[in-house]
């Protein structure tokens, strides 16, 4: 269609009273660096929608990890700290212990949380640190372009398991959410995904609950998002979402692994 015609339609439709969705102020205007089809964008969005809806933007401190979400602080419009690789839960402990009345979350990938940061994650959860751990599990090291992660599925091809993950050599995928769920200090562990609209809604609900529990001082909350990595899985966004559905979710079943007592 002609340029003038397009402009006419846009200016006609894009008016305040027709708005059905607006990005919340808790997200900055910075363009995301994530690859097309990646789950991070959706996860960022629903997390920050919850922060916006709860009205806690001015009392929330987030911790970004090392990995694809290393630049999360460019997008999340709250006070942020950038942690060393794997140390987000230790950094969050430092933040929460001196500011117990503030809301604190970490946002970490599988390499950060379940490989180099396993000790920090497990011990923070074991102390029942009263913050939210957002765990994005896409079974691969994204930022360093596709190496095997602790959560890589058996048989899955990565740049460091070019013939597929052989459990005899590389061991088995680590279901760290299940480990965390077994600890008494932990309030809430749930596994969600963002590959379909219905799952996005459920994942957002999980974030709402986690902040609610944090407010009530119930202990550690971990929300795992089983996600995709089109670029490093060498798939189209659609194929990668199908892989989430067909391969990832059967291995990492969705649902609550632990809920607070009396809930």
């Amino acid at each position: 269609m002609a340029e003038e015609e397009k402009d006419f339609i846009f200016s006609d439709i894009c008016v305040e009273e027709n708005l059905v969705y607006r990005k919340p102020d808790t997200l900055t205007d910075t363009e995301l660096h994530y690859c097309p089809g990646c789950g991070h964008g959706v996860a960022h969005k629903i997390l920050m929608e919850v922060v916006d809806e709860l009205g806690i933007q001015n009392e929330t401190i987030g911790v970004a990890p090392v990995g694809c979400s290393v630049f999360a602080y460019h997008y999340l419009n709250v006070d942020m700290q950038e942690a060393a690789h794997g140390r987000a839960c230790a950094v969050a402990t430092g933040i929460k212990r001196v500011q117990p009345d503030k809301f604190v979350f970490t946002y970490q990938g599988d390499g950060d949380l379940a490989a180099i940061g396993t000790a920090e994650t497990i011990h923070a959860a074991n102390r029942g640190e009263n913050f939210l751990i957002v765990f994005i599990n896409n079974g691969v090291y994204g930022m360093t372009s596709g190496q095997m992660a602790p959560t890589t599925l058996p048989g899955m091809v990565t740049t460091t398991s070019p013939f597929g993950r052989d459990t005899k050599i590389h061991g088995y995928p680590l279901k760290i959410a299940n480990l965390v769920a077994s600890l008494p200090g932990v309030a809430y562990v749930t596994r969600q995904s963002v590959h379909k609209p219905v799952n996005v809604r459920k994942a957002k609900k999980a974030f709402q609950k986690a902040f609610e529990y944090q407010k009530r001082g119930l202990g550690t909350c971990l929300v795992e998002i089983v996600s995709n990595c089109p670029s490093n899985w060498r798939m189209t966004p659609l194929e990668s979402n199908k892989f989430v559905e067909d391969k990832m979710i059967p291995f990492y079943p969705l649902g609550d692994l632990k809920v607070p007592e009396g809930k």
């Binding site: 700290q81 060393a84 950094v91 430092g94 001196v98 500011q99």
Partner: peptide
């Protein structure tokens, strides 16, 4: 661990 301790220091110093 000392690794965790110094990162807790980072977190609260940054507050």
């Amino acid at each position: 661990s000392e690794v965790a301790a110094i990162n807790m220091i980072y977190g609260s110093a940054a507050c």
